[in-house]
């Protein structure tokens, strides 16, 4: 067991625990806090994968912008706690169980029965220089210039849409 794998297992356990707690919590605000903790664990995992810029962006964009917005709306609406999750076993619960079991059995089949490919079993040698601001910037302003520009249009549309939808009429 190296330090890296210890860190990975700790972060993985933390991420899964906070995700499960988020789903079972009845208060939406507590759910949001658990989701923020989950995003921090994911940012640390991105660092473990040598994606430095995206680890920073994960914290800045997700926990700094999106989750603050979510917490704001929760507090603004002053929501009461949800009742018991289900009083009777609805058909939706069964769909959930079947879907979750299907996903898990599929992934178990792929990894442990079909076997993993020989290629890509270790992080590639150039990965450290891949996730830097420099190489990401070169990719975004070179190969992905058109999608990058279209993203700005998308964000403009989203701003206008949000203002129009949330505006009080009259």
């Amino acid at each position: 067991m190296t330090v890296e794998s210890l860190v990975f297992f700790f972060l993985a356990a933390f991420a899964v625990t906070t995700a499960v707690l988020m789903v079972v919590q009845r208060s939406p605000l507590v759910s949001a806090i658990y989701l923020i903790a989950n995003f921090f664990a994911l940012a640390a995992l991105y660092l473990l994968l040598r994606a430095q810029l995206l680890a920073v962006l994960q914290i800045v964009v997700y926990t700094g912008a999106i989750m603050v917005l979510v917490v704001f709306v929760i507090m603004l609406l002053n929501l009461e706690e949800e009742g018991r999750v289900r009083t009777r076993i609805a058909i939706r619960t069964w769909i959930t169980v079947v879907l979750a079991a299907g996903f898990l059995s599929e992934i178990v089949y792929v990894f442990f029965v079909a076997g993993t490919p020989a290629e890509g079993t270790t992080i590639s040698a150039g990965a450290e220089s891949l996730g830097t601001v420099e190489s990401m910037g070169e990719a975004l302003f070179g190969k992905f210039l058109l999608p990058f520009e279209i993203t700005s249009l998308l964000l403009l549309t989203a701003i206008l849409g949000a203002v129009v939808l949330a505006k009080r009429k009259g």
Binding site: L49, R50, A51, L53, L54, L57, Q58, V61, Y62, A65, I66, G120, T121, T122, I123, S124, A125, G126, A127, L130, G131, S135, M136, A139, L140, K143, F144, P147, F148, T151, L154, L155, T157, A158
Partner: peptide, 22 residues
Amino acid sequence: SSFLGSITGQALVFFAMAVAAA
């Protein structure tokens, strides 16, 4: 992205974050 040594996956995540914000 980091196991195959290609930047494309990380660029895609960048766009996915922008779409998630919108």
